[in-house]
Design a protein around this nucleic acid. Structure first.
Lengths: 123, 123
DNA sequence: GTACGTGCAAATGATTTGCGTTAAG
DNA sequence: CTTAACGCAAATCATTTGCACGTAC
């Protein structure tokens, strides 16, 4: 994979942004640095960056969002303001895996949990 | 909400089908009973059935799927054959909620967990 | 220099919308 | 009877693709 300007700009943006931006938001921001970039290029690059394990794609309410935080973690979505918070808990991940291991024959590789609620500002 | 033939057919199909069908699959099946039904009608009805709490929408790998099983449960997806299994564990749900309650100010209403792994046939 | 990536425009696919007609209650 | 829902076609929106040109390595 070549580290082109476009690719690096997308990566840099995601490394600094913890709001789980959508394709549209990534495109609009990167466009400010590289005005000639197109959405097709953003799409192609996001796919390649995901495939190379440099970013993660999360689907929230049918919308694709991206993040550069690679450690396993959960997402909490405020159903009032739409904010997406990260929630990391190794205990919870381990507990879930043990639970499944005990009750099924299935070998789990990864898990994705999304919680819905109201954040401290909105409640 | 009126219980039209189309709506009842969709509901009946989902009540008997535990494979988390997509819009396309629902459309193709219901079409056999009601040949004049269109995809637009299926879309409109799925939305209304979700809004009325009669079915649930789950988004798996960017694809919308539907189910009539309303009790909270988790999904396990076999990354080899694509099969989607249900996994119900009240303990796990309670544990997750307690974990968040202890560590944040957020009030959680619901949670959606998707596990990725290989099923007993594929492993 | 070569292969991979870019930008553009066109294609595809999913979902939504508007509207005249039909049927549920 | 009245209003919500249907079927159809067109519109919209997200994402993908093909291809000539450009650039990272």
């Amino acid at each position: 994979m070549k580290y082109t300007n476009q690719r690096v700009a997308i990566l840099d943006f995601l490394k600094d942004n913890f709001n789980h931006p959508t394709v549209e938001e990534i495109f609009e921001t990167v466009k400010q640095k590289l005005p000639r970039i197109t959405k097709a290029t953003v799409y192609k690059n996001l796919k390649i960056l995901v495939a190379n394990g440099l970013i993660k794609e999360v689907n929230i309410k049918g919308v694709s969002r991206f993040e550069a935080k690679m450690e396993p973690h959960h997402h909490i979505i405020c159903t009032s303001c739409g904010k997406i918070l990260d929630f990391k808990s190794k205990e919870l991940i381990d507990y879930a895996l043990k639970m499944i291991e005990n009750q099924t024959e299935i070998i789990i590789d990864s898990a994705e949990t999304t919680f819905f609620g109201r954040c401290e500002i909105c409640e």
